[in-house]
Design a protein around this nucleic acid. Sequence first.
DNA 1: GTCTATACGAGGATAGAC
DNA 2: GTCTATCCTCGTATAGAC
Lengths: 182, 182
Amino acid sequence: MDQRRTDTREQIQTIALELFAEQGYDGTSLREIAERLGMTKAAVYYHFKTKEEILTSLIEDFLDQLDELVSWGSEQPPSRQRCRAVLRRYSELLSGRTAELARFMQEGQSAIRDLAVGVEIRKRFGQLADLLTTPDQPLSTRLRARIALITLHVGTFAGAELGGSTQERRDASLQIAHELME
Amino acid sequence: MDQRRTDTREQIQTIALELFAEQGYDGTSLREIAERLGMTKAAVYYHFKTKEEILTSLIEDFLDQLDELVSWGSEQPPSRQRCRAVLRRYSELLSGRTAELARFMQEGQSAIRDLAVGVEIRKRFGQLADLLTTPDQPLSTRLRARIALITLHVGTFAGAELGGSTQERRDASLQIAHELME
DNA sequence: GTCTATACGAGGATAGAC
DNA sequence: GTCTATCCTCGTATAGAC
């Protein structure tokens, strides 16, 4: 069974995400990643051409989930129901298996900014925001849509010092996001 | 007149802020900063002990302005007027001479996160949010205060693709921030 | 007091041996 | 598929010219 290749690749991704989330992308060295797995730097380079490719491979997972949500939303007729559903689903996406990744992306925007995958993320984020409104809305409404999405980020990642459980903060931010779009 | 020492120091700060904002903190090397000023790396090291000290010196400027706003707000009695005034003043602060710095800090959170000055920024941000509410408000209200502040960031920095002038976006985000606290 | 010259270890990256 | 040897650039540090 040739399962090793995939195993090693996935192990690298797992450790890398962990370290990126802890120390940031630039703050994490390839040697750290390699040593945690008992390999050398060069061994890591067999599985990924560059350090950036490790990051990109991680983000693509999140991108796929975003794509799914955007295309689901596009099939629904514009309505208040769709708006609420997209917000709820995005909130769930942020707290699912890509939670750690989403948190890291929030803090490490500058590391992602100039990557091809960063451009894609921003594009999807804009599409998602557009699903919250009907077309040709004024600036303030479109701004509101973006803030509603960011509200979900804040509730999930940045509110730890506010007390309450993670679930309570998530629910509260979803509620605020809904109100923003009413 | 011994004005040179200060001049050089300030020149380094100016160029550094420019490059940090363009390429991020980790993406900017000391050689780039030095070369733009026609100096060597080592010359920069005469004026700043470390690269981090350059960053810290820049952020302290922003921190001072935050301090001023927080202490002004603390002297006002809690009221809807104070809430509105703090939001408006923070909006003005973000678009003033520290605009570029504020933008960079937004994107480069991971570079600042573990610095002493980063802890201070977060502390002031929390104090500012607390000025928007009266004490002992429920979680959702305190969350709303933080989102109101972030709304001003979004309007100032992240809305370029929405069209409209910078001023229009700023005004719209201030309006949304006010509504969030009503 | 200000800067040049130079060196060190660690980082990402590559070529090629096994 | 894994690793050695090597390269360049990075932040940092120090010695010493002016």
